[in-house]
Design a protein around this nucleic acid. Structure first.
Lengths: 335, 335
DNA sequence: TACACTCCCGAAATCGATTTCGTAGCATAT
DNA sequence: ATATGCTACGAAATCGATTTCGGGAGTGTA
């Protein structure tokens, strides 16, 4: 049996009320008793039962981190985010509970909410369906969406500045003299994809280059999808001299396709990715990308969520974080 | 206010006892009332309060997953493990709570134990100090160490078969005709390192090749450490024709050093890694490695832990999992 | 009729903390 | 002397479930 508050109270011949108040910094406890209580608490190795606290205070000091199975494909993204988030949470005595949840069924989420397993959620998702956002707002559960902005005006989110990142990438490619730039996209245009595509299109238009629909190819969210997309681009009669893969993993796939064709990177085809996954630095040549402050995003998501937990009636917080162009060999200037 | 068991009992004019028993499958409830209770529970959207259950049942159905900061360096290892583990845990209604904890101070662990935040721990650590193992055994907390075997006979662990994996790697290199094989090691020899090194040494001895101490170089657990180690090897007068990096990240570092020297992989220097991190497939050429069934390790660690939670007096479980040699271009046969 | 035995159900204790409210004891003001 | 205020503490309610124990109603047996 573990040490409870009662053990302390009996030993000191005090009431449990007083002991609890002494431990929790209430003012109606004399300095002398407080020291006594603190002392014996440490001496006995007392730590309050989480369950009892949770039940009484109706909060858990736990935060749910919700992933979907794409976790495995973005593991280093995840790892950095989680490190930042965990540190921020632990600093204020909170813990992080992991959930893997596919977006299509809100049932298990509802269960978590009803059971009060956590005080709030951070979604590290490619896509949080509107249905779920509505449900969460309905249930008045504090939540923050990480890595992706959503349309609902009442939702809080924190996301990288995809548009300006993609603009920098395009600027970089245009300055290098590329005029035919391929773009890989996703079948369903989420905001992330849309923003990066908008930047692609706008940059071309501003440079006076006409959009060639042939240069825009679809990739699915599955292995080798970027590989096939790149092949399609390389098969074009008027082959692009650069490929803007909208995600580092797609860039790595494309890299492979290019190498297999016997083409040189960046001389024959330059390639750039997005998101700053660490793997993009390990290819030969390493791939130019746009990096995000991942640990900071993780940290910030926790801080945002804690604010909402403290007061869920605050206006939603929506943050766009600056990104940074990281030029690597895969897109070196043409001479 | 959320729906409690009392709401159901009032609506049906039953006692809370009966409602609880109906929901939890007790036999002393008639089939009729059970259906009634189940029905209105669903109708009202009832889910039992986690805190109340935990308090009364003295268990949380939560498992603590403890990492240290190296998490960032082994993110895809982590990701696969966690996916397997989470799936296994959710299948039996358990959840996973993440903790990042440096091995040196057991204080925060003690707090978690005393507060009964979780029912047990899985340590995904490079190194769990004996001090902590002893403490956990003392406190009778169920725990499993993942990815690394430990000396203490009472500890449960699950780890890859490092010795036979490294043996296969060495066999592969020896068959390719290599006789001078460099090995990168760690300053403090843990079991993992030791097993891989033993296999290295034994394979050489069996092949009648003398151990050359110059070919064994140290790496620290920090970025670029493998890079420097490889350079040291390449600087030798009688340069090795192959490098056995004891970890994929070290292999990637070494890869870079070799490329910078203008040497060709595998013609001038072959290279092999260990652990099957997915990044090792993305280099050019991709790096030969030994893969582990990571998702299974994650899953298995949960099952082992659950057994210990059910009965912590069981004899410890210690599992070695088979690994698989994955030959890639970085060590292709010499002609 | 008496007794034993099942089948269902409810009262109440319990898990371990937090928090409200009341008050004894003492000092100070009127 | 009475009123007022302040400090420091304790009694008891409370959070929401689980679980033990006891017993009424109904059936079967001697």
């Amino acid at each position: 049996m573990s040490v409870t508050i009662e053990d302390i109270s009996k030993k000191l011949k005090l009431s449990t009320s007083t002991v609890s108040k002494a431990l929790n910094g209430y003012k109606d406890v004399s300095e002398k008793t407080r020291e006594l209580v603190m002392g014996t608490a440490k001496e006995l190795g007392y730590h309050p039962s989480a369950a009892a606290r949770n039940l009484r205070r109706q909060r858990t000091d736990k935060i749910g981190f919700v992933f979907n199975n794409s976790l495995m494909y973005i593991s280093d993204y995840f790892a950095e985010v989680i490190v930042g988030a965990t540190a921020a949470a632990e600093a204020v005595g909170n813990n992080i509970v992991l959930y893997i949840n596919e977006g299509d069924s809100p049932d298990s989420l509802i269960k978590l909410i009803r059971a009060k397993e956590v005080d709030g959620f951070v979604f590290v998702w490619n896509h949080v369906p509107d249905q779920i956002v509505d449900m969460l707002l309905d249930e008045k559960v504090p939540f923050v969406i990480l890595g992706r902005r959503v349309s609902h005006p009442e939702a809080s989110w924190i996301a990288p500045d995809n548009y300006s990142g993609a603009t920098e990438l395009m600027q970089h490619l245009l300055e290098a003299g590329h005029t035919r730039i391929g773009f890989t996209t996703r079948p369903s245009m989420g905001h992330t994809n849309q923003d990066r595509f908008d930047a692609y299109r706008d940059a071309l238009v501003q440079a006076g280059i006409e959009i060639d629909e042939d240069l825009i190819v679809e990739t699915k969210i599955e292995p080798f999808s970027g590989y096939h997309a790149a092949k399609k681009l390389l098969d074009l009669e008027d082959r692009p001299t650069a490929i803007f893969a909208f995600h580092d993993y797609v860039a790595i796939d494309a890299h492979q396709a290019i190498v297999e064709r016997g083409l040189k990177i960046p001389d024959d085809v330059a390639i750039v990715g997005f998101d700053g996954l660490s793997v993009s630095a390990f290819t030969t040549p390493p791939i130019t990308t746009v990096t995000q402050p991942l640990a900071e995003i993780g940290r910030e998501s926790i801080l945002m969520l804690l604010k909402r937990i403290a007061n869920n009636n605050l206006p939603p917080i929506q943050k766009t974080l600056p990104v940074e162009l990281e030029v690597r060999l895969s897109s070196q200037l043409k001479k």
